[in-house]
C-alpha cells in the first residue's frame, strides 16, 4: 500500500462528519482518564448491575439520542422542531398521572406508555399540519407548541410534580440487561427501528428530496405535505418516549424542568452528526454519535470541575471546534498549511 492511498483514505475518512464526533468523544474520555486513570472503570455492583462513568454516560445519552433521531428527520426536510422538550414533559406528565391512577401492574405501565405516545403523536401532528397545510414556518410553529406543550403538561398534573411507583417502569428506566442500562438498549433499538423505517422504505430518500429542493420534488410528484406531517409525528412520538424514560428514572415528572432546553442539545447532536440545518442529506448514526458526545461533554464538564457559570461557554467551544473540523473549507485550508511544511510524514 502506497502512502498516497493511505492519505486518500484518511482524507475520505476526515470528510465523514461522524468520524469527528467519535474523535471528540475519545479525546474527552482521554482527558478525563488523564485526570483520573480509573475514569473509564466499570464495576459490577453486588446487585448485578454495572456502575461507572461510561454506564452513566450511556444512560444520560439515551433520551437525547431518541429526540435527536426525530430532530434529524425534521431538520432533513429543512425544518426544525423546538417542541421536543415539551413533548418530553407531556410524555412524562401523562405517564406519571396514568401510573398514579393505575395499579402498579405491567398492564398499567403499558397503558401509560401508550397514552403518552398517543398524545405526543397528536402534538407532532399539530406541528405537521400547521407547517405542511397552513404553511407556517417550522420555527414559529414549534416555538408555539413548545410553549403551549409545557403549559399543557402543567394542566395535566395540575401544576404538581406528580410521582408514581411502578416496578416495570422503574426497571426500564434504571434496570440493566447483562450489565447494560435498559434505557440505552431501548434507545439503540429505537435507532435501529428508525433506520430501518427510513432506509428500507423510501421515506429517507423522499425526505431528503423535499429537503434539498421542494420545488423540483413537487414537479416530480413527491407529496411534500404528508411527508412533513409524518416527520413531525415521528419527532413528537420520540419526544414522548424520551420523556417517559427520563421521568421513569426518578419516577417523578418535574413539569418545570423535564426536557427543558433539551431541544437545543438535540439540534446540536444533529449538526454534530453531519446533517445540515438547511435540510437534505441526513445521518441518523451521526445524530446518535452526536447525542453520545453531548452526554460525554456534560459529564466531562462536571468531572473537570468547570465552574457552573462557565459550563455553557466550555460546551460552546467544543462544539464550535468540532463544526470547524467538519467544514470542508477549513479542512482544505489546514491541509494547505500542512503541505507547505516539509512532507516528512510520507516516509513515516
Amino acid at each position: 500500500m502506497t502512502a498516497t492511498t493511505t492519505r486518500e483514505r484518511l482524507g475520505a475518512l476526515a470528510s465523514t462528519p461522524l468520524v469527528w464526533g467519535l474523535v471528540a468523544i475519545v479525546v474527552l474520555l482521554a482527558i478525563n482518564s488523564l485526570r483520573d486513570p480509573g475514569y473509564l472503570g466499570v464495576e459490577l455492583a453486588a446487585s448485578g448491575r454495572l456502575t461507572g462513568n461510561p454506564i452513566d454516560i450511556l444512560r444520560t445519552a439515551a433520551p437525547l439520542l431518541m429526540i435527536a433521531l426525530g430532530m434529524t428527520l425534521v431538520v432533513a426536510t429543512g425544518g426544525i422542531d423546538l417542541s421536543v422538550g415539551s413533548a418530553m414533559v407531556i410524555g412524562g406528565a401523562v405517564s406519571m398521572e396514568m401510573l398514579q391512577a393505575g395499579d402498579g401492574s405491567v398492564g398499567s405501565a403499558m397503558a401509560a406508555l401508550g397514552v403518552a405516545l398517543l398524545i405526543t403523536a397528536v402534538l407532532g401532528a399539530i406541528n405537521g399540519v400547521l407547517v405542511a397545510f397552513v404553511g407556517l414556518q417550522p420555527f414559529i410553529t414549534t416555538l408555539v407548541t413548545m410553549l403551549a406543550g409545557r403549559g399543557l403538561a402543567k394542566v395535566i398534573t395540575e401544576g404538581q410534580n406528580t410521582s408514581a411507583s411502578n416496578e416495570a417502569f422503574r426497571w426500564i428506566a434504571n434496570g440493566t440487561v447483562l450489565g447494560a442500562p435498559v434505557v440505552f438498549l431501548i434507545a439503540l433499538a429505537i435507532l435501529v427501528v428508525v433506520v430501518v423505517l427510513v432506509r428500507t422504505t423510501a421515506l429517507g430518500m423522499l425526505i431528503e428530496s423535499i429537503g434539498i429542493d421542494p420545488k423540483a420534488s413537487r414537479m416530480a410528484g413527491v407529496d411534500r405535505r404528508s411527508l412533513l406531517v409524518a416527520v413531525y409525528v415521528i419527532s413528537g412520538v420520540l419526544g414522548g418516549v424520551a420523556g417517559v424514560f427520563a421521568t421513569g428514572s426518578v419516577m417523578t415528572v418535574d413539569v418545570s424542568n423535564t426536557g427543558l432546553l433539551l431541544e437545543l442539545d438535540a439540534i446540536l447532536a444533529v449538526v454534530v452528526g453531519g446533517t445540515a440545518l438547511t435540510g437534505g442529506r441526513f445521518s441518523l448514526a451521526g445524530a446518535a454519535i452526536g447525542a453520545l458526545l453531548i452526554a460525554t461533554l456534560d459529564k466531562t464538564v462536571v468531572f473537570l470541575g468547570v465552574s457552573s457559570a462557565a459550563t455553557p461557554a466550555f460546551k460552546a467551544v467544543v462544539i464550535v471546534a468540532l463544526c470547524l473540523l467538519q467544514s470542508a473549507t477549513i479542512r482544505e485550508r489546514l491541509s494547505r498549511v500542512r503541505l507547505r511544511a516539509p512532507r516528512r510524514e510520507v516516509t513515516a
Binding site: 422504505t201 423510501a202 430518500m205 423522499l206 416530480a220 410528484g221 411527508l227
Partner: peptide, 11 residues
C-alpha cells in the same frame, strides 16, 4: 424519484 413518489413511500 417520480416512480417512487407515485408508489408512495411505503412501497
Amino acid at each position: 424519484l417520480a416512480v417512487q413518489a407515485k408508489r408512495g413511500w411505503l412501497r
